[in-house]
Simulated scan of single mutants.
Amino acid sequence: MIFDGFMIAGAIVCALSVLIGVGSAIWKRYPTDASILSLAAVELFLVVYAIQAGVRQAGGAPIQGAPWEFWGYLVTALFVGVLAGWWGIGEKSRWSNIVMAAAGFTIFVMLYRMQQVWVGTGWI
């Protein structure tokens, strides 16, 4: 499968978010600005990713899989990040760091699947 720059950047941003969330939970800290902002960075990346995907598709770049599947994953990933951030702000326990870290990992998996749908792999 082909990994473009956006997939690599998304993997890095998601990995940092996961590491910050897990690190904060291990050190028994309440959600800090760093863990919440790391999830906000993932959300910002997703917004930029959505814009570039729209521009690419409008420019004629074909999605090899079903377009509704790609856009469905993208919208769902946006909701996952927002809900996890809301949870982290609302519940001031160290376990909310785990929720935010799980959201970062979940969004990474969804990015990987979106890449598969876009370039086509013959898998699934």
Rank of each mutant, 00 (worst) to 15 (best):
M1E: 09
I2C: 07
D4Y: 02
G10K: 08
V13G: 03
V13R: 01
S17L: 13
I20S: 05
G21F: 00
V22F: 11
G23T: 02
Y30N: 13
P31H: 00
T32I: 02
D33G: 05
I36P: 06
L39K: 03
L39G: 04
L46H: 03
L46S: 03
V48F: 15
V48R: 12
A50W: 01
I51T: 06
I51N: 05
I51H: 03
G54N: 00
V55W: 11
V55K: 10
R56Q: 05
A58W: 04
P62A: 05
Q64E: 10
G65E: 00
W68Q: 11
W68R: 14
E69W: 07
E69V: 11
W71F: 01
W71T: 01
G72K: 01
Y73F: 15
A77P: 14
L78K: 12
F79R: 09
W86Q: 08
W86M: 13
G88N: 12
G90F: 14
K92V: 02
S93F: 04
S93L: 08
R94D: 06
W95C: 13
V99H: 02
M100Y: 02
A102F: 00
F108W: 06
V109Y: 09
V109A: 10
V109W: 14
M110D: 15
Y112T: 12
M114P: 04
V117R: 03
V117Y: 04
W123R: 12
W123V: 12
I124R: 09
